[in-house]
Amino acid sequence: MPGSGEARFDRPGADGGPAVVAVAVPPGLRTEFFGETADAAAGEPEVGVLTERLRGLGRIVVVDDPRDLPALRAAFARADVVVSSWGMPRLTGELLAAAPRVGLLAHTGAAIAPYVGADAFARGVRVTQAGQGMARSVAEVALAFTLALLHRTHRYDHALRGGREWAAASVAPPRHEVFGARIGVVGASRTGRAYIEVVRALGARVQVADPTLTAPEAARIGAELVPLDRLLSTSRIVALHAPSLPETRHLIGARELALLADGAGLVNTARSWLVDEDALLAALRTGRIDAALDVYDAEPLPLGHGFRALPNVLLTPHQAAGTVECRRRQGDIVVDEVERYLTGRSLDHEVGPEALIRVG
C-alpha cells in the first residue's frame, strides 16, 4: 500500500468503476493493523497478507495523517469506503458533504462517536467497528492487574525502585491468590466476558453487576449476578468493564469507593469516565485500597498527577489493547467488513446511531 498514492483494481464502486477505499490510518498503525512494513533498502512497502487482501478490494487511497483535513476531503471525494483510526475528525458536516459516495465507515477501534455523526447515519452511511478484536488483550491486561494487586507486586516494585531498605520494602498488606478469590466485574461487555473467562480459568469466584443481564445469563458465563453495592463490598478485586454511557458517568464515586473492603483493589482498563478520579485519588491516598489503571481523565497523564507518586497504584499509559495479536485481529475485522460490504453481504460488526451515545 503506497504511503501517499493509490493502486487500481476491478471491483465496482458507486460510479460503476473500481471501488475506492480511503484508508485514513497513519503508517505505523497501518503496519500494526494490516502488516504493511517499509523496505528501507528499496524504499517500497512490503505488503502483508491483510494489505494484499485490502488491495484486492478496489483502489486504495491512503491518508497518512488522519488529521489532515485537505487530504481527507480529497480522498473522501471519490471514496466508497472510509477506514478510520484514532485522530480522524468526525465524518459529519462539511467533511461528510465532501464524501458523497461514501457508504461505509469501517473503524479500526471500538467507540465510533468521535469519528461519525448522526447526519452520516441519516444519509445512510453504514458503520462498523473492530472492538471485538480488542477484548482478549484488554482482558489479559486486566488479569495481569488483578494478579499484581492480589500479590502487591506494584508496592514492592515501587519500594525497591524508590530506594527503601530491603526490610522496609518487604512490608505490604496481606497478599492473596486468585484461586478462590471473589472477583467483581462491573459490566458484562465483550471485554468483561473475556475477563470473566480468564479469571475463572484460574479458579476465581466471579460476581457481576450489569443491569442488562439476567441471573440465568450471568450463570451461563460463570458468574453470579449481584447488585453493585454488594459487589463492591464483597469483592477482593473489582474490575470495571462497563460502557461509557451517560448513566455510567462516575458510576464509581466516593460513596462506592467507601464500600470497598480494606485491602481491596480496583482495576480500570475501560474508561476513566466510569470513575470519579478525584474521589479515587483521595481514597488511594489513605492507603486503604489499591488500584491498577490504564485510563485517565487527562491523557497523557500529567507529570505532576497524584497517581504517579502513590505506592499502591499500578499505572500503564492506555496501552491495554496494544498487543501485536490484537492489532492484527482489528485489521482482520476491518478488511472482512469492507469485503462484505463491497460484495453485498451482511456485516458482522455493524453499529447503528445508538452507538453515538457511548462516550469516547
Score class of each variant (00 low, 15 high):
Gly5Pro: 10
Arg11Tyr: 09
Asp15Lys: 13
Pro18Ser: 15
Val21Gly: 12
Phe34Val: 05
Gly35Ile: 10
Asp39Ala: 08
Glu46Asn: 04
Val47Thr: 14
Gly56Asn: 03
Ile60Met: 13
Val62Ile: 14
Val62Pro: 04
Asp64Phe: 00
Pro66Cys: 06
Arg67His: 09
Arg67Ala: 15
Pro70Gly: 05
Ala71Gln: 08
Ala71Glu: 13
Asp80Ala: 11
Val83Gly: 04
Ser85Gln: 09
Arg101Ile: 00
Ala106Met: 06
Ala106Asp: 08
Ala106Tyr: 08
Ala111Gly: 14
Gly124Ile: 04
Arg126Phe: 06
Met134Pro: 00
Ala135His: 14
Ser137Pro: 05
Val141Trp: 10
Leu143Val: 11
Ala144Leu: 15
Thr146Val: 11
Thr146Leu: 07
Leu147Asp: 06
Leu147Phe: 03
Leu149His: 12
Leu150Met: 09
Arg152Thr: 07
Thr153Tyr: 11
Gly162Gln: 02
Gly163Tyr: 01
Ala169Asp: 08
Ala169Phe: 08
Val171Gly: 00
Ala172Cys: 12
Arg175Glu: 13
His176Ala: 15
Ala181Leu: 14
Arg182Tyr: 04
Ile183Gly: 07
Gly184Thr: 08
Gly184Asn: 10
Arg190Ser: 13
Tyr195Arg: 10
Ile196Trp: 05
Val198Asn: 06
Leu202Thr: 11
Gly203Arg: 10
Arg205Trp: 01
Gln207Cys: 14
Val208Tyr: 05
Ala209Leu: 04
Ala209Arg: 01
Pro211Phe: 03
Pro211Gln: 02
Thr214Asp: 10
Ala223Arg: 06
Glu224Ser: 13
Leu228Gln: 06
Leu232Val: 04
Ala242Asp: 03
Ala242Tyr: 08
Pro246Gln: 11
Ile252Lys: 10
Arg255Met: 00
Arg255Ser: 12
Ala258Asp: 12
Ala258Gly: 07
Asp262His: 09
Gly265Met: 03
Leu266Met: 06
Val267Pro: 09
Val267Gln: 05
Ser272Ile: 00
Asp278Leu: 07
Leu284Gln: 01
Arg285Val: 02
Thr286Cys: 04
Thr286Pro: 07
Arg288Lys: 05
Ile289Gln: 06
Asp290Ser: 15
Pro300Val: 01
Leu303Ser: 14
Leu303Ala: 15
Gly306Cys: 06
Phe307Pro: 00
Leu310Gly: 01
Asn312Glu: 04
Leu314Pro: 03
Leu314Met: 11
Arg327Ser: 12
Arg329Glu: 14
Val338Phe: 10
Glu339Asn: 04
Arg340Val: 01
Leu342Asn: 05
Ser346Leu: 12
Asp348Met: 09
Asp348Ala: 15
Gly360Ile: 02
